[in-house]
């Protein structure tokens, strides 16, 4: 069986990649994808700690991940709807051009 730290390392690297995408890209859709990567890395941690934890009988980590996946889906839907709404007003999805609060 693979040790716990390998999974935590994968999770940390995936979080870093998602973070880099969220802070360096200009396209808002890719920024949302980076946030989804970060959520997936958090899910990875939940599952790894559940699998290696002492309470193997109660599926607590799995429950947390189920709710996280639901929240991630809701976040993606609302976020992409926001991007489309901004695009309708400003004709852009580049974040550096969305610098005005006035509609």
């Amino acid at each position: 069986m693979t040790p716990l730290s390998y999974y935590l390392g994968l999770s940390g690297l995936l979080f870093a990649v998602g973070f880099a995408g969220a802070v360096t890209r200009r396209n808002a859709v890719i920024v949302l994808l980076g946030i989804e990567f970060m959520l997936g890395a958090a899910n990875m941690n939940f599952i790894a700690f559940w699998r290696f934890g002492a309470s193997g009988s109660a599926p607590t980590g799995i429950m947390a991940v189920i709710f996280t996946i639901a929240i991630a889906a809701a976040e993606a839907a609302v976020g992409l709807a926001l991007i489309i709404a901004v695009y309708r007003h400003r004709q852009t999805t580049q974040l550096e051009q969305m610098d005005s609060l006035k509609g």
């Binding site: 716990l4 730290s5 935590l8 390392g9 940390g12 870093a16 973070f19 880099a20 360096t24 193997g56």
Partner: peptide, 27 residues
């Protein structure tokens, strides 16, 4: 952004790989 990312990755990965859970085997 890349600098902040590298700092974040180091803050996550260094504790993981220096802790005692390194070779914890699953039940």
């Amino acid at each position: 952004g890349i600098a902040i990312t590298l700092g974040t990755a180091a803050a996550i990965l260094v504790p993981i790989f220096s802790s005692s859970i390194l070779y914890k085997i699953a039940p």
